[in-house]
């Protein structure tokens, strides 16, 4: 199989469209006949990343590559960056404001979830420059 490449622009501050990229990837993987558990891991990780881009970084870009053996996701934003990554990775840590918490976000479980649902996980972040997540999920 040739690898498939997908690109999405995530608009900042638009919750009605947040989730569009992850549901599109979910549909594509379903059509390719990928195992449901893999699809679930990929789409949850992507959705958490998408929402973080909207809430914390004013939007960004997502690139997805689907190969025979793995799904590679790159989520890049030019937001404020993460000051203390170790703290941000802790379950329960969140800087989400109250209006965002009312929507059901801000549990501080997004980054831990992304780590949990991916096989490879790396964050490059720099304060004032932005954040990029490099994620991989293996297809068994």
């Amino acid at each position: 199989m040739d690898s498939i490449r997908l690109h999405y622009l995530v608009p900042g501050d638009d919750f009605t469209r947040a989730g569009a990229a992850s549901s599109d990837v979910k549909r594509t993987l379903k059509e390719l006949g990928v195992a449901p558990s893999v699809i679930r891991n990929v789409s949850i990780a992507m959705y958490e990343g998408e929402i973080n881009m909207v809430i914390h970084a004013g939007g960004g870009d997502i690139d997805v590559e689907i190969t025979e053996n793995e799904i590679i996701m790159t989520l890049a934003d030019k937001g404020p960056g993460i000051e203390n990554l170790e703290l941000a990775m802790k379950e329960g840590f969140s800087t989400a404001p109250d209006n965002i918490r009312c929507l059901g976000f801000g549990a501080g479980m997004g980054l831990p979830n992304i780590k949990k649902y991916t096989d490879e996980f790396r964050i490059d972040t720099k304060v004032g420059v932005g954040t990029t997540l490099h994620l991989k999920v293996y297809i068994q």
Binding site: S23, R40, I51, G104, F105, M109, N113, K116
Partner: peptide
């Protein structure tokens, strides 16, 4: 709490919540 649900809910679950917004719909699909 949506991230909590995404961490713990399983396929086929009945999901009990007070969150009747668009993000809850997305989470239910995922």
């Amino acid at each position: 709490l949506l991230s909590w649900v995404m961490s713990k809910a399983e396929a086929g679950d009945i999901w009990l919540t007070v969150m009747g917004n668009i993000n809850a719909v997305a989470v239910s699909v995922l």
